[in-house]
Computed example of a mutant assay.
Amino acid sequence: MVLYTHHLPQWKRDEVEEIIRFSKEYKLTGLVDLHGIPASQLQQMRRNLRGLAVLKMTRNTLIEHAFSELGGEIGKTAGYIDGQSAMIYTNENPFKLYRKLQDTMTKMVAKPGDTAPEDVVISKGPTAFPPGPIVGTLQQAGIPAAIESGKVVIRETKTVVKAGEEINEKMADVLSKLDIRPIDVGLSLQIAFYDGTFFEPGTLAIDETEYFNNIILAAQQAFNLSVNAAYPTATTAGAIIGKAVREAKNLAVEAAIYEKDVVELIIGRAQRESLAVKSLVE
């Protein structure tokens, strides 16, 4: 029986021991936040993760007990527990896990008190509402609405809630009526411990297309540097030799050095120059 759990009821001890066992069996141990996820959606997310990761939901206090027992670097995972946390385990690398969790995110209607993850913008244009009290409701929420040609329209595009601001009850009601879903709901990775290193979401949130393009650009720049500096590698040796041959030929032509590989180029250049002089004389 583990030192930190001898005083716990049997079912709690079993939970702690399972967390410890999973943390030793899997390459990656992580924490995800379950806040605001409806039960039905959570079950679907678990099915989506099948074959990739194991999601274990339990009490935060039991997670803390487990990591206290584990100790070492992985024991510091407990310091990242925040809100309604759950454990996640996988043998995949943290970048793949993060991308998969991002794929589980869906947009939900806002509830009063929710924090806007990004600017909430209502666009100019017609709505699906017939003329009626909705115009006053929109105006009271600070949205420039009017009736035009028998339709309720938004007269100008407006940011109604800025990122990080709280969505009040009136605004939540209006956004729901307009079917604007500003809240990201899904398994939000809080921390991942993998191969002795902690990975935070900010590190894992990379733009793969931009990253790939940067690698291609770096490879091109390295190739050009190697060629221009005449620093031969297995990749650039051919290009360096080709460049040297072209420069040698150009030098031989400019200096009128009659070698068999350039004599025709010299004659051709002389002919072009003579024709140019002829055209000026005539």
Rank of each mutant, 00 (worst) to 15 (best):
P112G: 14
E165S: 06
R99C: 00
G132C: 10
P144V: 10
K162S: 14
D173R: 14
T157W: 04
Q190R: 12
I143F: 03
K151W: 04
A172Y: 11
E169A: 15
F129M: 03
S149F: 13
G83T: 11
Y89I: 01
E169Q: 14
A163R: 14
G142W: 09
P117F: 10
Y98R: 02
M87C: 13
R155Q: 12
L97D: 00
V174T: 08
G186P: 01
Y98T: 01
T104A: 02
K170Y: 05
E148W: 02
P133A: 09
K170E: 15
G83W: 13
V152Q: 12
D82K: 12
T157Y: 07
D119I: 12
P182G: 08
P126K: 15
P130C: 06
E166T: 15
P182R: 06
F95W: 13
G164D: 04
L178Y: 02
N93K: 11
I183G: 02
R99N: 02
P94E: 01
S85W: 09
K107R: 14
A110M: 10
E166C: 06
T127M: 07
I147D: 04
P182F: 11
V153Y: 08
S188Q: 13
A141F: 04
V160K: 03
T137I: 15
K111P: 02
K100R: 13
P133T: 07
T115C: 03
N91Q: 00
L178V: 03
K162I: 10
I167K: 06
L175E: 10
R155L: 12
K107C: 02
I180Q: 04
V152P: 10
N91G: 00
Q140N: 13
A116R: 06
V121W: 04
E148M: 12
Q139C: 03
T104Q: 14
P131R: 08
Q190G: 01
L175A: 10
E169Y: 08
T157V: 05
Q139N: 12
K124Y: 07
A116S: 13
E92Q: 10
I81T: 09
